[in-house]
Design a protein around this nucleic acid. Structure first.
Lengths: 240, 240
DNA sequence: CCAAAGCAAGAGCACCGCTCTCTAATGTGT
DNA sequence: ACACATTAGAGAGCGGTGCTCTTGCTTTGG
């Protein structure tokens, strides 16, 4: 028992220090941005010497990767929570609620958003461990379409041009085999476009252009819902 | 005369050195990304000492700002050139041509794209001098809408909800007073969404999702053209 | 021709990521 | 319970960074 506890003790200590490092790193990230994040500063703040930190993260990039995964998870969790709360609403409303949750999270964590959707330097390929956390938001949207379809609240958009059909079918097979390829293709596009809206607002591209961003975003996201095949409230109420 | 030439000489020398610095910096930017751009390395490559470089750019950030402006101009020029070449085509085709020029430029200059549309770190506000170059792409799109409207190839999208009307009218007054506010609002949204598509492709978000990106992009951009109020080829041919 | 301005160079400061070596503590197998 | 092996931390140090300041030298303009 004692040996097991002891093992547990050292393991727990390791976890705690690792968590403390990430916490402090996240603090500095939120305060100054990824470029300014410094291993030495983190170590200093934690009262340890910089070389000791390398026992926990083999390099600065590995620390950043850990923060990236956490950020994806944090955003994904927000999206999932928003979806869970809107579970009784119509699909369109669920869609806009989740989209707003994404925007809200981004506005609340600008540097973390920049970290994951900003410039993952071309040439840098994210390790596979980032894939599942990064997929969470997308999966929420797929879920919304799926439920909408079950409630007959999903319309198929304009027929796909021939050149896009193979790709759309491939995407549908990979992402949501139970949904029409045209909807899946539209969803992927709208997914990217949603983050275009968020990114432009966050990174200052709307600075002298859009004033009432909240309203503008809500409206744009409503159009995206339509584009993706979700029928608006009125018609759904009629149908169901 | 001699004094004037002399003055011209020193002024030209200054221009040449400034240009050489920017060229080398752009080289390093394209090769390694903005994070790795180092004043000392630029100076080393140019055979001067690092402190000499501060006669031309007061800080690393100022060098980067100069590169940002150049990147905006380079992208804007590509967009304008594409538009000029497609001047005889229908509005929808002009739209997609310019959009593809944006995507092509981004794929050809990934690090420069990341520099201007990546993460201009929240907290950093771009100096006013970046505004005109940054507007060039947007102005091309506004021009397309304007010409389409003149040729009666522009439809008004769904009526604006009351909450968005003031904002849409303000945007239209600022950006294109001669266009219907609903179209201007749609254009701003589609403009952001277009860069969402490009960014997702470039930054690896499409990695395990979209395979045939060229086709996917073309189709998505066609939908954006429709969303913005451009009527598709058939109908325009009928009208004109 | 001479003062003023512009320029390159060098030394130096404080910081960075990262490596290596050494000591002390901690857990493990017999 | 004890010797062994593993691990965490400390410290020094390497090569790099942005940036400042001082020192001479050249070019420019009156």
């Amino acid at each position: 028992m004692s040996s097991r506890t002891a093992q547990g003790v050292r393991a727990r200590a390791r976890m705690e220090v690792t968590a403390a490092i990430k916490d402090e790193a996240r603090r500095q990230l939120a305060a100054e941005g990824a470029a300014k994040l410094s291993l030495r500063a983190v170590a200093r703040e934690l009262g340890m010497v910089s070389s000791a930190l390398y026992r926990y993260f083999p390099s600065r990039d590995d620390l950043l990767t850990a923060l990236i995964i956490d950020a994806y998870d944090s955003l994904g969790e927000s999206a999932e929570a928003a979806h869970a709360e809107a579970v009784d609403a119509e699909p369109v409303r669920r869609w806009t609620t989740v989209a707003q949750a994404v925007r809200d999270w981004a506005l609340r964590h600008p540097h973390e958003y920049a970290l994951i959707y900003g410039s993952p330097v071309p040439g840098y390929t994210a390790p596979d461990t980032t894939v599942p956390p990064a997929s969470r938001v997308g999966l929420v949207f797929i879920g919304i379409l799926r439920e909408a379809r079950a409630a007959e609240g999903l319309t198929e958009p304009a027929p796909l041009p021939a050149e896009l059909r193979p790709e759309a079918e491939r995407m549908a097979a990979d992402l949501a085999p139970d949904l029409p390829p045209a909807n899946v293709a539209a969803l992927v596009a709208c997914w990217a476009q949603l983050f275009g809206l968020v990114g432009f607002e966050l990174f200052g591209q709307f600075n002298r252009v859009v004033e009432d961003r909240e309203t503008f975003f809500r409206h744009a996201v409503g159009r995206l819902a339509h584009e993706v095949g979700l029928v608006d409230g009125q018609r759904l109420t009629d149908a169901s």
